[in-house]
């Protein structure tokens, strides 16, 4: 994904949030949140339960008035007066699909299509049902559908109005792995159609798989960026060296090598070498090991998942909270 597609110079961002905050009395839901989301971007909004993710979505969706800061949504300033115009350009799929269970899939879509005053509604309903692969269940009452299928109907409902920004609030919450995979495939499909997606989740593998950029919220915004950049920001680059037998004098092998900043022995025959540039350090470490007569099993660059990043930041917050 190129960053040029996300924040093109000739178009304002799909979402621009500047110091936004919401308090319920003394309780802070979220505060001092800044970010921008470009058109066509899939933006992951991560955080633990109670971090303020859903409240942020509701605020940007004009359901809740912010107590501080400002924002533009789909190019329109977030104010109470602009509520109708903003809601016309966005769609929100809440955590619970919120379908009328006694009504059929088509009747649910008809209702929402009319609420959006969608032109050519019959065709749009067919298109939306095709997009979520539900044409064969169009006449079924929503109460007879599984949770995964209901989530698909909620996605079809959101697609009816062809939104500029689609907010998905925990779209796979409570789904089994097959249901979650289906939703992931649908989101992939939407991304390919160029829909801007704001995805809140606490499923990190989901965010890692689907999102171009992620932000981590824990009442305040803890970090934002591409997952690869966040890894670099938060974790030192390391090489993990494994030898058949422990090195008799590892310091003589690793100390003084180019681009090697330090090392430590993790367990018997396994060494973690901190490096500033793995492209320089890895060949130097390999040569030094061969010169020392070591039987090398593997040399690999360590990988930090989004989960590592997330846990690192949330643990920091918990640590600060305990002090």
């Amino acid at each position: 994904m190129s960053s040029g597609r996300l924040l093109s110079a000739d178009r304002s961002p799909a979402l621009s949030v500047r110091g936004l905050g919401k308090h319920f009395g003394e309780r802070v839901a979220f505060q001092d949140v800044f970010f921008e989301v470009g058109y066509g971007e899939v933006f992951g909004f991560l955080g633990p339960n109670g971090a303020g993710k859903t409240t942020t979505v509701r605020t940007l969706g004009t359901l809740i008035a912010p107590t501080s800061g400002s924002a533009t949504v789909a190019g329109i300033p977030l104010t109470a007066e602009n509520g109708v115009e903003i809601r016309r350009r966005i769609a929100i799929v809440p955590e619970s699909p919120g379908l009328y269970l006694r009504l059929s899939v088509t009747e649910n879509l008809e209702c929402f299509g009319d609420l959006y005053e969608t032109p050519g509604l019959k065709d749009r309903i067919q298109d939306a049902l095709r997009a979520v692969d539900m044409t064969d269940r169009a006449g079924d009452a929503c109460g007879t559908l599984s949770k995964g299928l209901r989530q698909r109907v909620a996605l079809a409902r959101a697609l009816l109005s062809d939104p500029e920004v689609l907010f998905l609030d925990e779209p796979t919450s409570g789904l089994d792995p097959v249901g979650a995979r289906d939703v992931h495939e649908l989101i992939d499909g939407l991304r390919n159609r160029g829909v801007t997606i704001f995805l809140t989740t606490h499923r990190l593998e989901e965010a890692e798989r689907l999102c171009d950029r992620v932000a981590i919220l824990n009442t305040t915004l803890r970090t934002i960026g591409w997952p690869a950049d966040l890894r670099e920001q938060l974790f030192a680059k390391t090489l993990v060296v494994r030898t058949l037998v422990p090195l008799p004098e590892p310091g003589r092998v690793f100390d003084g090598l180019p681009a090697v900043d330090g090392w430590h022995e993790r367990d018997s025959g396994a060494y973690v070498v901190s490096v500033s540039d793995s492209a320089i350090a890895a060949p130097a470490v390999t040569r030094a090991l061969v010169a020392a007569g070591a039987d090398v099993l593997s040399i690999s660059e360590s990988y930090h998942s989004l989960e590592d990043i997330y846990l690192e930041l949330i643990d920091e917050d918990n640590e600060v909270g305990r002090r």
Binding site: G61, L63, V84, E85, R87, R88, I90, A91, I92, P94, S96, P97, G98, L99, Y100, L101, F112, L115, Y116, E117, A154, R157
Partner: peptide
């Protein structure tokens, strides 16, 4: 109580 109010209120309806 059914959880259907929020999706309706996210539409442009006044």
């Amino acid at each position: 109580q059914q959880g259907t109010l929020e999706p309706v209120l996210t539409t442009p309806i006044r």
